[in-house]
């Protein structure tokens, strides 16, 4: 693979340095973001609405470009030259599974990404089957996605990205709109994965459950970065950035 040094220490899964970005209408969303996610880490990206979380996510695979600063994924710079490789390495699971699942059957949808990367035949089939098995949806391969429950669709959306064997899995609000059982099932799936995860969420208990480390993005910069439990217990920080725990939830009392 180009860009990744061989031998020695592997580069971090994600390296964002000095990233600043303003939309064409002049609204500046990011003011110099620095973030390093090491290989195998699970990191929660927290922050109030309008903090720039989505803007940051869209920079990770080069959908948005043109601001200052740099993003590197597994050592590969995100730029026009490496776009194809970067999109294979960064798997984004979007918030609404209906946006992500558009092929007539689950199997075809999961095959879409790896087929775009040039896979076919037996190799493609095993990739698809493994990805579906990882999210516990193997027996739904031939169903049309719109006939699945919302939780099942979310899990298939995760599989569509896992099938590309990404360096880093980026989840945008993975627990939104899920009932408690689907929420738990998804947590079990994510917990069993052996892949770097960046999870964008408002769901603070979910962040605590799944991610040992958390980063708070507010006003377009990283304002806090540390163990998730410590951040959630820092009342001044939480209040300042409009982060609120659900009623009755005490992060000190939870065992992870």
């Amino acid at each position: 693979m180009t860009g990744a040094p061989r031998g020695g220490q592997l580069p971090p899964s994600l390296e964002v340095s000095g990233l600043a970005f303003a939309y064409p209408d002049g609204h500046q969303a990011l003011f110099g973001v620095d973030l390093v996610v090491r290989r195998g880490e699970r990191v929660a990206l927290l922050g109030p609405n309008g903090a720039g979380k989505t803007t940051l996510v869209l920079h990770l695979n080069g959908i948005l470009t043109g601001g200052r600063g740099q993003v590197r994924v597994g050592g590969v710079p995100v730029d026009a030259e490496h776009l194809r490789e970067v999109r294979q390495r960064v798997g984004i699971v979007f918030q609404d599974p209906d946006d992500q699942l558009f092929m007539p059957t689950v199997r075809q949808d999961v095959a879409f990404g790896p087929a775009n990367c040039g896979l076919d035949g037996e190799e493609l089939r095993t990739r698809v089957e493994r990805a579906l098995a990882q999210v516990g949806m193997a027996e739904f391969a031939d169903r049309p996605p719109h006939h699945l429950s919302f939780g099942q669709r979310r899990r298939v959306a995760v599989a569509t990205v896992l099938a590309m064997e990404p360096e880093i899995l980026v989840l945008d609000e993975p627990s939104s709109n899920l009932d408690p059982a689907s929420r738990r099932e998804l947590a079990e799936v994510l917990d069993a994965l052996d892949v770097t995860v960046l999870m964008v969420t408002h769901d603070l208990p979910y962040a605590l459950q799944l991610c040992p480390r958390a980063v708070v993005l507010s006003g377009g910069t990283v304002v806090a970065d540390g163990p998730t439990r410590e951040l959630l217990c820092d009342e001044a920080l939480m209040r300042q950035h409009r982060l609120e725990l659900p009623f009755g939830f005490d992060p000190r009392s939870v065992r992870v």
């Binding site: 558009f102 075809q108 775009n116």
Partner: peptide, 23 residues
């Protein structure tokens, strides 16, 4: 807008304009 989001999700999975032929 949904169309735009679907396209975004397709591009994120390496879509470059042609659909892969499967099955």
């Amino acid at each position: 807008e949904r169309g735009e989001r679907v396209h975004l999700a397709m591009v994120s999975r390496g879509h470059t304009g042609s659909m892969p032929v499967l099955d």
